[in-house]
């Protein structure tokens, strides 16, 4: 077994990046349309992929249509490079393309993500691909596709605020913490995929191209670089991101999205960065655990 994996795949008759070239072209055409109309959901002919819907097939197809031999791919799931979904998708692309993969955000040319935007700011030569389960932000209140399309077409977005109103009425504040609806380019309301609302501000005027793929729902949409992305809110209940009393227990970061980790069965827990690359790099860069640092003194 000296042959690289992707050569093996080619030998077995698979095209580069799994999808055939016609399918990739069709998808790229849909993506170009999506870029031209920021936030607008473009239908595409989603293919059967060698993993079930719900495992990121939309994002995988978008990535497959873009990736070339010189690309460097990073895949994250909930911010981490090491979770099942990230590992299997990374492995899939290594076998199907032979491209280099990385965990370092700044090295990647394409970052495919589920549920997070990396903490480190992306640059204009990078593309961020989101995996999307339900692309239609109005679906919760309006089950008819014909009607939601009309609402988008006519920019009738009052319904979106009905949901936020319900939040405040029920909880005293807007309790939606992920998949928090945004207005893209002052025109289309868009579901940013189930990222925490903590990441919403990062989408605003981001330097890199953001692409969204929903495999089961057969939709792609996009936010081109430097496009405004505004989180919906009320004048007297303005949008605000999550904050924590703690800093990261591992790297001490106070500016990142923290996951709560249960450490034992006696109620012990700690908060650590959800972005594993960000956290480990900070530790490598000399930042220390504040608790341990205090103990050393």
């Amino acid at each position: 077994m000296t042959m690289p994996l992707h050569t093996e795949a080619r030998a077995a008759g698979y095209n580069f990046a799994f999808l055939d070239e016609q399918t990739k072209r069709a998808l790229r055409r849909a993506l170009l349309k999506a870029v031209a109309i920021p936030g607008y959901q473009v239908p595409f002919a989603s293919r059967e992929m060698p993993m079930p819907f719900g495992w990121g097939t939309g994002g995988i197809q978008v990535t497959a249509s873009l990736i070339g031999p010189d690309d460097v791919l990073k895949v994250i799931d909930q911010g981490s490079d090491d979770t099942t979904n990230a590992v299997s998708i990374r492995k899939f692309f290594r076998r199907m393309t032979g491209v280099r993969t990385t965990e370092r955000t700044e090295e990647a040319t394409i970052v495919q993500t589920r549920h997070r935007v990396p903490e480190r700011a992306l640059s204009d030569d990078q593309i961020l691909v989101y995996q999307v389960p339900i692309p239609e932000p109005l679906r919760y209140l309006e089950p008819r596709e014909t009607e939601t399309r009309k609402l988008h077409a006519l920019s009738e977005y009052g319904l979106m605020h009905v949901k936020l109103y319900e939040d405040i009425a029920r909880h005293g504040h807007i309790a939606t913490t992920y998949a928090y609806p945004v207005m893209v380019g002052d025109r289309y309301v868009m579901d940013p995929s189930p990222i925490p609302k903590f990441d919403n501000p990062k989408m605003h005027r981001m330097r890199s191209l953001q692409l969204f793929g929903a495999g089961r729902e057969q939709r792609v949409y996009a936010v081109p670089p430097f496009t405004s992305v505004r989180s919906l809110d009320f004048e007297d209940h303005p949008f605000a991101v999550q904050t924590w009393d703690q800093t990261c227990a591992l790297c001490g970061a106070g500016d990142s999205f923290l996951d709560e980790i249960v450490t034992d069965d006696r109620g012990g827990r700690m908060f650590v960065c959800s972005d594993s690359d960000y956290c480990s790099r900070r530790r490598g860069d000399g930042e220390t655990d504040p608790a341990r640092g205090a103990a050393a003194e």
Partner: peptide
């Protein structure tokens, strides 16, 4: 599936009311 208040308020929000 939405509250009585939101049912009544929907038309207000549909015409641009944004002060909860």
């Amino acid at each position: 599936h939405v509250s009585a208040g939101a049912n009544v308020a929907e038309r207000l929000m549909a015409v641009g009311a944004r002060h909860y």
